[in-house]
Structure formats: C-alpha cells, structure tokens
C-alpha cells in the first residue's frame, strides 16, 4: 500500500516540487496551504507522514506540529519541518514541539527522499 504524505506549504512552487518528487517515488500526496488548512484535512485521512513549512500565514508550522501531536492519530507520526539555515533556533523550537526531523531549504529531490526514507522507512 502506497503511503500517504501530507505537505504543508504556502508556496505553490514548493508544494509542486515536493509533490512531484513524492509522487515519483510512489507516495500518495495530500497538500495543504497552511497549518489551519492542514488541520482541517487530517481528520479521517490516513496520513503516514507530514512535511511542513514553518513560516506560513494563518497557522505557522510549529503551532501545527504542536496541534497534530495532541491528536491521538498523530502521536507517533513522523513530522518533518522545512527550515532554512537562518532559522537555527526555530529548528529547536520545532523539535520541542514534537517534530521528528527537518530538511534545510534549499534542498534537492534526492535529499528530500533521503529524509523521508530515514523517518518513514
């Protein structure tokens, strides 16, 4: 069974790139434009992993991670955040909120797949 990954990013080009890369590897993809949108889409959907940007309008990535971890279905789900080098302290904040790992932007498709394989198997 193909695993489902949710990508949360307000940038449509990043969503497209991540989406294409994931689909190319055989994953199913659910897209959300920000934290609020993501929370609205998770109920009922069987999601195996979440990849979220941090800087987003409406609800940022860190709040999203915190909210997801409160849901029983997401207690142990791998959640990876997209960070940039200039956001070292945000990385720690994300980890504390319950993120499994991070990918530093900019990244190449291979790096993205590498991280997914790492946390999702």
């Amino acid at each position: 069974m193909a695993k489902t990954i949710m990508t949360v990013d307000d940038s449509s080009s990043v969503r497209q790139m991540v989406g294409l890369t994931l689909k190319g590897e055989g994953y199913q993809v659910v897209e959300a434009v920000d934290g609020k949108d993501a929370l609205g889409k998770v109920s009922g959907a069987a999601i195996d992993m979440v990849i979220t940007d941090l800087n987003m309008p409406n609800m940022d990535g860190i709040t999203l991670i915190r909210e997801l971890r409160k849901l029983p279905a997401f207690k142990f789900t791998p959640i990876v955040m997209l960070t940039t080098e200039s956001q070292a302290e945000r990385k720690q904040e994300g980890k504390d909120a319950g993120a499994t790992g991070w990918i530093v932007k900019p990244f190449k498709p291979e790096q993205l797949i590498g991280v997914i394989k790492k946390v999702l198997g």
Binding site: D10, S13, V14, M17, N55, L82, K105
Partner: peptide, 10 residues
C-alpha cells in the same frame, strides 16, 4: 523567504 527558498530549489 518563499522567493529565496523556492528560487534556490529551482
């Protein structure tokens, strides 16, 4: 931030 991040990736 988005222009920078996506720009680098593309």
């Amino acid at each position: 931030h988005t222009i920078k991040g996506s720009g680098a990736m593309f």
